[in-house]
């Protein structure tokens, strides 16, 4: 799939998302920028509550109805601002067709009262722009199931008849049925057994390569990131505090103190299965964010300026860090 125009596949520009209830306003995403091209995989890393899921949901405009709002910024799919599209176009063209999303828990992502075949068929049926017949669509259902390693004859079974790993495969099949350009995967393997995790990930990687689907993989497992991601973005308190290619992030050198904390010690690209080392303290209250750098309360290298001013982003090639420690380095060249 080659881009016709020069715009990258996905661009998020200064996106801000809030959740507003009568009681309080939660500042979930506070100005992030993301760029992704065809076939690329971006690993979105961070602790729970950093805003990763919110980011994914806002791309598809699936934020909770009256509560979630994108207050600023643009989300561009090949140059078209998704935030300005009418709802029915989102539904017909984008969701499930050009952009798909899969969620963390396969146990609850599938409708227990519909067969897996029906659920995959549904995705095809509502995006049937080529007016294929029912038989053709059913064939496609079979194909998709086989692609994820499930025999097509099982399509009339119900979700509870499948194991966790197989359920997640069904979910993936459902997401890839219409061959989307972008897949949003929210911790797809977290709820699975370790052994199954590896299988499912490998399968996802392969499918992705074959279909040239771009992917945003939300995870807190650095091993997974090292395994299949091309780019990495580290999120904290609704901001991207460091981003770059997977080499940028995993190689020794300048890194945001938070990233350092996450890694424990920065691992080699060859090493896999690294767990996150918890950092002291908790993420700031999203209804009451601190002034200046949001990581300052927990940062072991916090300076006076960090508590006052928000750090500027230092860009070195593909590697960018939002930290006062490195903004000055820029001046030094």
């Amino acid at each position: 799939m080659n881009s016709e125009n020069n715009a990258p596949l996905l661009q998020l520009k200064n996106v801000h998302v809030i959740y507003k209830t009568d009681a309080e306003t939660v500042y979930a995403v506070n100005g992030i920028d993301i760029e992704l091209d065809y076939g690329e995989t971006l690993g979105l890393v961070g602790e729970t509550g950093a805003g990763k899921t919110t980011t994914a949901l806002s791309i598809l405009r699936l934020l909770p109805d009256r509560i979630g709002k994108v207050t600023e910024g643009e989300i561009l799919l090949k140059g078209t601002n998704l935030l300005e599209l009418p709802e029915n176009e989102m539904r017909e063209d984008i969701r499930g067709k050009r952009i798909s999303m899969i969620f963390q828990d396969p146990m609850t992502s599938l409708n227990p009262t519909m067969t897996v075949g029906e659920q995959i068929y549904e995705a095809l049926h509502y995006h049937n722009s080529e007016d294929k017949s029912a038989e053709e669509l059913q064939q496609r259902v079979d194909e998709t199931l086989e692609l994820v390693g499930i025999p097509a004859r099982r399509k009339n079974e119900f979700p509870h008849q499948f194991s966790g790993g197989m359920k997640q495969r069904v979910v993936i099949a459902m997401a890839l049925a219409c061959q989307p350009e972008l897949l949003l995967a929210d911790e797809p393997t977290t709820a699975l057994d370790v052994t199954i995790q590896a299988q499912v990930l490998a399968m996802m990687g392969e499918l992705q390569r074959n279909l040239k689907t771009a992917m945003i993989l939300i995870t807190h497992d650095l091993g997974v990131v090292a395994q299949i991601c091309d780019k990495v973005a580290v999120m904290y308190a609704g901001e991207i505090i460091e981003k770059g290619t997977v080499e940028d992030i995993f190689t020794e050198g300048d890194h945001h103190p938070y990233t350092v904390g996450l890694f424990g010690s920065i691992p080699d690209l060859e090493e896999t299965g690294t767990r996150l080392h918890p950092i002291n303290g908790l993420m700031p209250d999203p209804t009451n964010l601190p002034k200046g750098c949001k990581f300052s309360p927990r940062c072991p290298r916090c300076m006076e300026i960090c508590k006052e001013k928000e750090p500027a982003v230092r860009l070195k090639g593909t590697h960018s860090i939002a930290c006062h420690l490195f903004s000055d380095a820029e001046k030094e060249g």
């Binding site: 699936l62 798909s100 992502s109 409708n111 549904e122 509502y126």
Partner: peptide
């Protein structure tokens, strides 16, 4: 429930979601 969000993410129209996914369960 998650499967409702999944259905929405698939682009299923709201009417169908209410009937087939929500009501049935």
């Amino acid at each position: 429930q998650d499967y409702i969000t999944t259905a929405k993410a698939k682009g299923v129209p709201q009417r169908v979601i209410t009937r087939k996914h929500a009501l049935k369960n």
